Simulated scan of single mutants.
Amino acid sequence: MTAPDIGQQYDEIASWWNERHDHSTYGLAQVNRALAFVPNGGKALDVGCGSGGRFVRRLIEQRFIVTGIDASAQMIGLARANHPDTLFINANIIDWKTSETYDFILVWDCLFHLPLEHQAQVLSKLCGLLSKNGVLIHSFGDGDGDHTDRWRGQTFRYSSMGITRNIEVLHDRGLSLLHLELDQFPENHVYAISRKL
């Protein structure tokens, strides 16, 4: 599956996603755990931001200047409507480039949509976008390899390079692991919180 496909797939469910997740609490406890490791304020990047909502509001409450990026044009349109004073970028994270660095990077439930061969590259790139002492929280699949699954009437591809390889990439890019949790509800995945040394 190529990167634009996932954007098109989420275009088809963007309105449903916005209604379901705008005021959801899913993932907030984990993000709050990560935010406890950083001072309030600075610049934050939300990768796979979808239509914004709970995570963007939480980052703004913590006085972060937020940039969101998502492959779905429809999601980005909704995010801009939901948060008109926030910068949202419609791009796929594989190809996106920036000269900015960020104090906090959030990558929740999106890396597993990337083709397996791009996962280490993208995670490495995100590590490089962290400021010194910046914090990254990212979730990923708890297995190795890839598979497809039916969801919302579409076939989605999922992949994961596994826990060990994720930790190796963090270490190789100069990050220190602060928290690792096998988080099995409501999704079967892992999340990690790391700091740039």
Rank of each mutant, 00 (worst) to 15 (best):
G52M: 11
R57K: 14
L111N: 14
I60T: 12
L45R: 03
H118G: 10
Q154I: 07
L178M: 04
H147V: 15
G162L: 00
C127K: 07
T101A: 01
A44W: 06
I93N: 10
V66Y: 03
G41Y: 06
P84Y: 09
W96E: 05
D109Q: 01
D109H: 04
E117A: 03
I69S: 12
L45D: 01
R173P: 09
G68E: 01
L123N: 11
P115W: 12
T98S: 15
A91L: 12
V122C: 10
T67P: 00
L116I: 15
K132R: 15
R152A: 15
F64I: 07
A120L: 03
D109T: 11
L170E: 00
R165M: 05
C110E: 07
D46L: 10
G141Q: 06
G174C: 04
K132Y: 14
D149T: 14
K97D: 15
V135R: 03
L136N: 11
D142R: 10
I89D: 07
V122I: 10
L178E: 03
S131I: 02
V107Q: 07
T101E: 10
D95Q: 14
G77P: 06
D70Y: 00
S51L: 12
D172V: 09
L136Y: 12
P84E: 09
F156L: 11
F88N: 01
A79W: 02
G42D: 01
S99G: 14
Y102V: 02
A91N: 14
H171Y: 08
S72H: 11
K43Y: 04
E117W: 04
S72K: 10
S72W: 09
S160Q: 08
Q74G: 05
V66R: 05
T155W: 13
F112K: 12
H138C: 15
L126M: 12
Q119K: 10
A120N: 01
P39G: 08
G77W: 08
R152G: 14
G77C: 14
N133T: 10
R150A: 11
I167G: 05
R54T: 04
L78A: 10
S139A: 09
V107P: 06
N92L: 04
D172R: 12
A79F: 04
W151A: 14
E61N: 08
P115K: 01
L106E: 05
Y158G: 09
N133A: 06
A71S: 13
S176A: 14
G143W: 00
G134P: 01
I105Q: 03
I167V: 07
T98C: 13
A120G: 05
A73E: 15
L175R: 09
N40R: 07
Q154W: 03
Q154N: 12
N40W: 07
V66K: 04
G153I: 00
F88V: 02
L78P: 00
N133W: 06
H147G: 13
T86V: 09
G128L: 14
H113I: 02
